[in-house]
Design a protein around this nucleic acid. Structure first.
Lengths: 218, 218
DNA sequence: TCCTGTGAATGGCTTCACAGCG
DNA sequence: CGCTGTGAAGCCATTCACAGGA
């Protein structure tokens, strides 16, 4: 048996799957389920039941043979790991349609993700508020992030402004960025970046359509 | 040497990287570069130069020793593979802030991704137009997609409506979906689905912040 | 010397397969 | 029996390392 204590090693692939496990076990919990089998979790997540069992084992979540896993136990353990009870301070740069969509996304605060600052370059927007959060000048990103203790920065600007925003966030002490702009950001290694790139996703779908459709089935 | 002809086998991981290779070689092309080394591509994409060389080889893109790869050749080959010269017909379900952000995203049409239909359930929106595309009733998704030959469906609805929309798209002959709703869709295996899930991404960032910050550096 | 081309080695994730227990 | 727990096998992607041509 491997080390299953707090400082244990988790495989990167397992880590990537944790948030989805958490979501589905939340849904199961709210639908009143007490236990769940690895096979059910496999269906709900799209992973294989082998992978689910291996992951939960690595996450120190024990099941009961013949029964399954305890839904509440999964929820609690994964919530601890992700830190849903903690509150994370987010800022969004760029209050276009995308930035607005994010700032209105009520699921965020329910998950301990609080948007506490919005930034834009447009003088007409600066000073107004969106979802109760005032829009500040983009030039003040670094200073305001430092002052407010922003932990996660969201880049929802046009591509041309993304790198500058990212730099300002980093200067302001932000060490995690979610980047919606279609550019590869160059950042210090200690800064976490995740990319959400719609164009890339659509091109991949197009590729698969084109390569599979002529074959009949896949 | 392996088979490098049209029907060749590409590794899934290579396929996932193609759109980004295409983007950076486009940028290089427009900045006037004639050739590019695998090391430069590595910096621009975030992959290793070994991986870049292996990928381009697998994609039948030859370089010249001591010089590098021909930017125009990469562009042309990858454009052929992705099908950028072809025109793809997209429809978006859900004209909230997110749907609007997508419909205004001018990069799409430049890449051969044309939004030809918008759907919503809100009677106040139906009949109006956004970015020159009329908003149709969500109930008509299947029929209109069939009529218009929609190839890629984008789900930008609230979570509760996502599965029904997906079903309608599939009924309308759409075989590729981009899902922004925080739910796992259950669909026939021949339908391609890609998920864009902001909540999952943010939770992963939070996890990494929490697990790395206390350690000092990573 | 520079950078590609490419077998071989490495490392890790997933799947197999089945033992083990309620 | 049902479903977990888990070594071992198999597979696949990446990295190493260096030969080879401009």
């Amino acid at each position: 048996m491997q080390d299953r204590r707090a400082g244990m090693h988790l495989r990167p692939t397992t880590i990537e799957r944790i948030p989805l496990y958490l979501r589905v076990s939340d849904q199961l919990f709210h639908s009143g389920a007490d236990t769940v089998s690895s096979e059910q979790l496999a269906v709900l997540t799209g992973y294989s039941s082998d992978t689910v069992r291996r992951d939960l084992w690595d996450l120190s979540i024990a099941g009961r043979r013949g029964i399954g896993f305890d839904v509440a136990a999964i929820r609690e353990r994964l919530g601890d790991i992700i830190g849903t009870s903690a509150s994370w301070r987010l800022a969004i740069a760029g209050v276009g349609n995308l930035g607005r969509a994010l700032s209105h996304y009520s699921n965020l605060s329910r998950r301990g993700l609080d948007i506490i600052a919005l930034f834009d370059v447009d003088p007409a927007k600066i000073g107004t508020a969106d979802s109760g959060v005032e829009i500040l000048p983009a030039l003040e990103i670094a200073g305001e992030c430092k002052r407010l203790g922003v932990q996660i920065g969201v880049i929802a600007t046009p591509a041309a402004a993304a790198q500058a925003c990212a730099n300002s966030f980093v200067e302001g002490g932000v060490r995690a960025l979610l980047n919606f702009a279609p550019v590869t950001l160059e950042l210090p290694r200690e800064v976490q970046v995740r990319r959400v790139d719609v164009l890339l996703e659509l091109q991949l779908l197009a590729y698969h359509l084109r390569s599979k459709a002529p074959l009949g089935d896949g």
